[in-house]
Simulated scan of single mutants.
Amino acid sequence: MGELIVVRHGQTEWSLSGRHAGRTDVPLTAAGEAAAAALAPKLARRSLVAVFSSPLGRALRTAELAGLTGVEPDPDLVEWDYGGYEGLTAAQIERTRPGWDLWRDGVVPGDAAHPGEHLDQVAARTDAALARIRPLLADGDVAVVAHGHLARILTVRWLGLAPSAARLLGHPHPGTLGFLTTENGHPVVSAWNVP
C-alpha cells in the first residue's frame, strides 16, 4: 500500500501573520514559493498515482512549484470556512470572545462569501476525499496539497479519530509534508511537518 502524502501550501502573508485564511485566496510569498520548490526533489522520488489539491491558488501554485503534475482540484480539500473570523488572528478573536478555542467553539457566521462551517462539516468533506483516495493507495502514493487546519482534520479522520482530535496535532508549517500510511493494518502517521 502506498502512502498518503499531505502537503501544506507554502507561506502566505496571512499565514506569516497568523490570520485565518479560509476561502480568501491569498498568494504565496517569495519564501512560500521557495519552500514549495524545495519540496520537488522529495516528491520526485515518489511513485505518485494521483495528486489532488485544494482549488485555491496558494495550493495549486504550491503543487506546480513542487513539480506535481496531473493535479486534480478537489473542492473537498479547501480550507475551513472561518466565517466571521476570516482574516482575523486568534488574539483578535479572543478580544471579543475570551478563551475562544477553534476546536471547541468553532466560528461565527460571516458574509455571503464566508458563511462559516462547523467542524463536522469540514470533517465530512475530508471523509469524502479520503473515500476517493483510499482505493488509489493500492497502486502507489497519493499526494494531497491543502491547508493547515484541513490537513489536521484529514489526518485524524485517516486515523479514525473524532474531528476535534485534530487539536492534538501540531499545526503543519507552510511548505511541509506529512506522511500517512498503515502499520500492521492500522492507520498511522509516519512523519509530520517534514520540510
Score class of each variant (00 low, 15 high):
H149K: 08
L119W: 02
R125D: 02
D139N: 13
G140C: 12
A146H: 10
G160I: 13
W80N: 07
I93H: 02
Y85V: 00
V49M: 06
L119H: 02
A50G: 03
R97L: 08
W103A: 01
G70A: 11
V145S: 05
R61L: 07
R61Y: 07
L88P: 03
A165M: 14
T24W: 01
V145I: 14
E64Y: 12
L88M: 15
L56W: 02
A59L: 09
P135N: 09
A138F: 13
A162S: 15
G70W: 14
I133C: 07
L39C: 04
D127P: 00
A131L: 11
D105R: 07
A146Q: 09
R125H: 06
A36C: 03
Q92T: 08
A123D: 01
V122Q: 08
W80A: 05
T155H: 11
G67D: 07
G87D: 01
L60T: 13
P55E: 03
L161G: 03
R152L: 12
A63D: 08
T155K: 11
A151G: 13
S53V: 06
D111Q: 03
T29S: 04
S53G: 06
I153M: 11
P115K: 07
E64M: 09
L39S: 01
R167P: 07
L136Q: 15
V71R: 10
P75S: 12
R45A: 15
L136D: 02
G140V: 08
A37I: 03
